[in-house]
């Protein structure tokens, strides 16, 4: 079985370049603006789209993504609305992979079976659930794989060679390498160490490796892309949303553009300078 994610990485390989994975929070700053941003992402240069499912207690996230989740919740975002946004996106785009990323509790409360049905039906391709390590695979990972969704696991600097096989075992689509021991939006990773770590993962798997956490500039994207199949940018994009808001935290005429401009700039890191403008 191939998914949109598999096909996209195959295409990237034949184009001979790495992909840009963008992360934004569903419903940030409001459902309508977030959908406008979502629809504009592929054209701006996003190859794979991660959508955050907001949660009140994001233990692995830094201040930028914490704030984005709270903005979304305050504007009334729910799981139902997040899935509706994916469905709306799929009306115009049937190729760009969509990965939902977040924490387990909102999925557990929605109901695992119903969530998988509805996510698949809406056009979701993969899931990243931060607080579900391989030790808890029965909760969601195995049912998700059975439902035909990719389950993308995080590998981190603390995942040693002994543990990597357990982490990779039920991973599909791609492996997300967390470039630093830390929270999202933290210090920039050391490129040399990242390349070494990705090389280590590649000795254990044929899956594409995407690298994220702490990546915020086109230069970093380019440097990391030299040794990985994709680069993930999240906090920097979420910050672009935050900075475009008015003093009441509402979207402005600049909001969508602020994000797409930054995505285009970051995409130049994987596409070469000719498409930078």
């Amino acid at each position: 079985m191939t998914t949109r994610i598999d096909r996209r990485f195959a295409d990237l390989k034949s184009e001979g370049r790495a992909g840009l994975v963008t992360f934004l929070m569903a419903g940030d700053p409001d459902a309508k603006t977030a959908l406008a941003i979502l629809k504009a992402l592929p054209k701006a240069g996003a190859d794979v789209i991660e959508i955050g499912m907001p949660f009140t207690d994001p233990m692995a996230d830094g201040p930028a993504i914490q704030a984005a989740g709270l903005r979304a919740l305050k504007s009334g975002q729910t799981m139902v609305k997040t899935l509706a946004a994916v469905r709306a996106f799929r009306k115009d785009d049937d190729t760009t992979p969509i990965v939902l990323m977040g924490y387990y509790n909102p999925i557990y409360i929605y109901g695992v079976a119903k969530f998988l049905d509805d996510a698949k039906g809406a056009g979701v391709d993969g899931l990243i659930v931060v607080d579900l390590p391989p030790e808890e695979d029965e909760e969601l990972c195995l049912p998700a794989l059975a439902a035909g969704l990719n389950f993308i696991r995080l590998a981190t600097p603390t995942t040693d060679d002994k543990r990597l096989p357990a982490v990779l075992k039920n991973t599909s689509g791609f492996v997300y390498y967390v470039s630093i021991a830390g929270i999202t939006g933290a210090a920039a990773p050391d490129v040399g160490q990242v390349h070494a770590a990705v090389g280590r993962i590649k000795r254990h798997t044929k899956l594409p490796v995407a690298v994220g956490f702490g990546v915020r500039s086109a230069k970093q994207v380019k440097d990391i892309a030299a040794g990985a199949e994709a680069v993930v940018v999240g906090s920097a994009l979420v910050n672009a949303v935050a900075k475009s808001l008015d003093n009441k935290g509402k979207a402005t005429g600049r909001t969508v553009k602020a994000v797409t401009n930054l995505v285009s700039e970051l995409a130049s890191g994987v596409r070469g300078p000719k498409k930078a403008k």
Binding site: M59, A60, Y104, V130, D131, L132, P133, P134, E135, E136, R153, L154, A155, T156, P157, T158, T159, D160, R163, V167, V178, A181, G182
Partner: peptide
């Protein structure tokens, strides 16, 4: 051995913390 009391308990943490 997996930390469960009936359906409760478990190890719902980020991968970074799992080895710890």
């Amino acid at each position: 051995e997996r930390g469960h009391f009936g359906i409760y308990g478990g190890r719902f943490v980020a991968e970074t913390l799992m080895p710890l």
